[in-house]
Simulated scan of single mutants.
Amino acid sequence: MHNTVKNLLDIENNIKNHLNKLNINNNPKVIAVSKTFCIDKILPLIDYGHIDFGENKVQEAIEKWTNIKKTNSKVKLHMIGRLQTNKVKFAVRIFDYIHSVDSEKLAKKICDEQNKIGKKIKIFLQVNIGNENQKSGISKNHVIQLANYCKEIGLDLIGLMCIPPINVDPDNYFKDMKELNNVLGFTELSMGMSSDFLLATQYLSTYVRIGSGIFGARS
Results as ranks from 00 to 15, higher is better:
34 S>D: 09
77 L>T: 10
182 N>H: 10
79 M>V: 01
76 K>C: 04
207 Y>M: 11
156 D>N: 15
209 R>T: 07
2 H>C: 04
45 L>H: 10
164 P>K: 07
27 N>C: 13
146 L>N: 09
18 H>L: 02
214 I>K: 05
27 N>S: 12
193 M>I: 07
75 V>C: 05
12 E>R: 14
61 A>I: 00
180 L>E: 06
86 N>P: 00
211 G>L: 04
84 Q>W: 12
76 K>S: 07
38 C>G: 01
72 N>D: 04
210 I>M: 02
65 W>P: 03
200 A>S: 07
171 D>T: 15
52 D>Y: 15
180 L>T: 05
102 D>S: 14
106 L>Q: 10
218 R>H: 06
71 T>H: 03
200 A>W: 02
8 L>W: 15
53 F>K: 05
210 I>W: 08
183 V>R: 13
4 T>R: 03
191 M>S: 11
126 Q>K: 09
156 D>A: 02
216 G>D: 08
83 L>P: 09
124 F>N: 09
57 K>G: 00
172 N>H: 13
61 A>M: 03
212 S>Y: 04
127 V>L: 07
146 L>D: 12
145 Q>T: 09
85 T>W: 02
1 M>N: 06
177 M>T: 11
141 N>W: 01
157 L>E: 08
73 S>A: 01
119 K>H: 13
85 T>S: 14
121 I>M: 03
127 V>A: 00
114 Q>P: 14
217 A>W: 06
90 F>K: 10
172 N>Y: 09
46 I>E: 07
61 A>E: 11
206 T>D: 12
73 S>H: 11
138 I>Y: 06
30 V>C: 01
20 N>I: 07
65 W>T: 01
145 Q>H: 14
41 K>Q: 13
114 Q>V: 01
164 P>N: 08
40 D>V: 00
34 S>E: 10
120 K>P: 04
112 D>H: 04
66 T>E: 13
208 V>M: 05
74 K>T: 11
78 H>N: 09
69 K>R: 03
216 G>V: 05
164 P>W: 08
158 I>L: 05
114 Q>T: 07
205 S>F: 01
14 N>R: 14
121 I>T: 03
20 N>C: 01
163 I>L: 08
169 D>K: 08
207 Y>F: 15
194 S>G: 12
173 Y>T: 07
25 N>E: 13
118 G>N: 15
43 L>S: 06
78 H>D: 13
67 N>D: 15
175 K>G: 03
38 C>Y: 11
117 I>Y: 06
93 R>I: 00
31 I>K: 01
